[in-house]
Amino acid sequence: MEFLLFLLRRVLWSLLVLVGLSVVIFLIARAVPGDPARMALGPTATQEQVTDLRHKLGLDRPLITQYGLFVAALSHGDLGRSLLTERAVTDDIRESFAATLELVLATIFLALAAGLPLGIAAARWKDRWPDTASRLVAILGAVTPTFFLALLLQLLAGYVLHVLPTTGRLDPADPFHADITGLITLDSLLEGRFAVTLDALRHLLLPATALAAATMGQMARLTRASMLEVMSQDYIEAARAFGIPDWLRVLKYTLRPSFVAPLTILGLEFASMIGNAFVVELVFSWPGMAAYGIRTILQKDLNAVMGVVMVSGAFFVGVNLVIDLLVGLVDPRIRIRGARA
């Protein structure tokens, strides 16, 4: 019951943020200097044609009505048509989104799979070499431009090691259509084509590493900090006094309450991760939203750009919702407080 209430509050709050996001995006789209109808038709169109299109797009109605129309369309998943590809923006984005999603999920997995153990080790052996290593990873991750790291990794793999592919999602010689979820790794597993899965993972490794570097270090430092805080509490001392083995004390009694801070921050970090995903996709020729987004930006294709921003924002809100629920699962104190507040 408490968990349901907690869940409900979180979902409602996420919806509210999405509404706010749609207002912001609508306002940006309407803040364009110049007339969108004129821009769409080009300088050779007659005044009549422009007035006509303005009416068709609803640009001659009051702003609040326009926003209403925008939201009504949005709730059907309609983001308008792209001027560049002359297709529905939703269709364009749907095609590229799966690639971005796969990259970002792999990045989150990598950041946690490397960051948490590093943080645990740093807390367990404070001021010894694992601690120094985690500090080094954290600071290097924080100060290296993502695009630069991506370039360096590509350079290393492409010209020095020759083991990992440096562009794309799959080897072009091995065609595979991911039609179930759009995630190649998952779909190929479902279809039982394990060679494709392996190839997809090999293609994922470098871009995901470049993207995960910044977050990985932060996860390690945060895990370390919250574990140290928990370790200083009486019940951990009691556990030690009772002779509970070292590994059980660290991995169970200390780790579980220490999950909350890194997970929450991971959610916030996620915004800059989406931004950086654009850069990484560009470097590794990853067929995600970035290529589409940047192409449409340079063409001033407003509907498409606003679609990309809206989808990025919704993605962020969705991931944070999942994280909030995970945090609630890990730490009962939070879901009880969250349900009552």
């Binding site: 915004a271 800059s272 991760m273 950086n276 654009f278 930006i297 962020f316």
Partner: peptide
């Protein structure tokens, strides 16, 4: 909270597109 939901780099891209 709403502003945090927009990735800074993506926002910069959008502004670059509009202006």
């Amino acid at each position: 909270d709403i502003a945090l939901a927009i990735p800074p780099l993506v926002m910069a891209l959008a502004v670059a597109a509009v202006l």
